[in-house]
Simulated assay, not measured.
Amino acid sequence: METITIENVLNSKPLVESGTFQGTGSPALIQPGQSVTVSFAAAKGEALSFATMYGWSNDLFFAPASPGIAVYGSDGTPIEGDVSGQIKLWDNGTRINQTPGASVNHPGTPDNQAIKEVNGVDAQGNTYAPASKLVSAVLKYNGNSTFTLTLTNTSGGTTNPTPLSPGVWSVSYIVGGNLLMPNPLYTAGQPTANGLTNIAEMGDNSKLWAYVQSITGIFTPLSPVLVVVYNGIDNPIYKIGEADRGQGLKYLAQRGVPDTLANYLKGLKGVKAVYNLAASGTRVLLPVINGAAGSKVSQDIKVVKGDRLAIATMYGFSNDWFFATAGNGVDATVMGDLSATIQLYNDGTAIDQFPGAGVTQFNLAGTPLTENLPISVVPNPNAFTTLPPIPNIIKVSLQ
């Protein structure tokens, strides 16, 4: 008797995407009348956050209220047009505010307050035009869950002309309807942190960007795992270069449901055993989250010489990607770590989007859009992102 164990060992990150923006001059300020763009992908419920300094202040910054600018309506329709009303002006709380303008003395007198919205008047009685009059934000939907946000410095000609500093932006993953990081850059009512002060006081985005980069990356659950023991036949789950056979792999690859394929394989000549392994409680195998171990499943199997073994499980935050044993499986009697034999494949049955930020991804409350391509290896880097090595995502061992 042997035991196969499959684990989600991914050291997950809470932000799906992030980046920086800046003007074209030296220093790279965004002067009145100038614009910058931010391009990103997002799923329903995800939002775009950013921060940029009100340059002619001691420690004020512009940012949307958390969790950021909503990019879909409640019905999943992409939002386009002017979203300037979602931009707010904030006091970082680390300096006493002087009258805003070119003569502000930097850095100024220290203060020790929590981050607070400036709604017309700051704590020192200085007045400000609405943030939406100083910074314009316009959303454009580019299709396939991708957007472009254009930020324009519209402060020229107002009572508060100011340059804007280089900034940082981010998009959080949404899992089970909840954002993993609803306050990625700041938290209203709390002290500033993670390098935001450098933006708010000096217009230096490097420290906050380093922090944001450190928490941007991959998050994905794995679906219940299909494990097959067979003899005398080729890998019965799939064959690279062929189209999905219509036996149920599509449901595993798109929805994380292996039941249809498992039932088909149980009646296939040469298949000796089929197991459908789901994690207790959630069913899916969650990754490592904030240091807490990821999920794993195990199954005792009985094999003899000549038997082969193959597995398949969905890359949960994709349209139709699945991990599977490469080629004709592995010798089911060879013990040890089998992770190096696992490959990531595209089932070719659904149009791909940014993993974890696609509005048609089934596990993000979407409906996959059909395509008809042969099964292929997912390249790395791919058109959307760079994935960790596969053994750093899924571990398969036989003992």
Rank of each mutant, 00 (worst) to 15 (best):
V274P: 12
I199P: 11
G248Q: 03
V271S: 00
N263K: 09
D307E: 03
N144R: 12
Q34M: 06
G294Q: 03
G270H: 10
A65I: 12
K116A: 15
V228K: 01
G76R: 09
T260Q: 11
P78W: 15
L89T: 10
V121A: 09
N346Q: 01
Y315V: 05
L369Y: 15
D307Y: 08
G125M: 08
A28Y: 00
K272T: 11
K207F: 12
A41Y: 07
D259C: 01
A193C: 09
I115D: 08
T77C: 07
N194W: 11
Q98R: 04
L185T: 10
K44G: 02
D347A: 14
K133Y: 13
N231W: 01
F147M: 08
A262M: 00
L179I: 05
V71C: 10
V257E: 15
P163M: 02
T154D: 00
W169H: 10
L164Q: 09
E117M: 14
Q22D: 13
T109L: 13
G19C: 00
P130H: 05
F147W: 10
E17W: 03
K133D: 02
I237K: 00
N231F: 00
G256T: 07
A51E: 12
R283W: 09
L286Q: 06
V334N: 07
V359H: 12
K44A: 02
I311E: 03
A131R: 15
A365F: 14
G329H: 01
F219R: 06
A193Q: 04
T313E: 00
G167W: 06
A65Y: 14
V377H: 10
I199T: 05
V274M: 06
P388S: 00
L29F: 01
N290V: 12
A332W: 14
N142R: 13
G81N: 01
N153G: 12
N178D: 14
V274H: 07
N235M: 13
P166W: 06
A262R: 09
N263T: 02
L29Y: 09
T3I: 12
L398G: 05
A129L: 11
N372G: 10
G327R: 00
G267M: 03
N205L: 01
A279S: 08
A42M: 12
T216Y: 03
T216H: 02
Y186K: 10
L373P: 06
W56S: 14
W90D: 11
T5G: 08
M202A: 13
V359R: 12
L226N: 10
N8F: 01
L134E: 11
N363E: 07
S145R: 11
E242Q: 05
F40L: 09
P389N: 04
P32T: 11
T360Q: 03
N112K: 12
V227M: 04
V284R: 10
I215S: 02
A312D: 01
N112T: 13
N11P: 13
S12H: 03
S206N: 04
I394F: 02
P221E: 11
I301S: 04
V288I: 06
L309W: 06
K269P: 10
P166C: 00
I30C: 11
T158A: 03
I233S: 04
W90N: 09
P32Q: 03
P388V: 08
S165L: 09
N178W: 14
V303Q: 07
P381R: 03
T333A: 10
G85A: 15
G291H: 01
N8D: 00
S18R: 04
S74P: 00
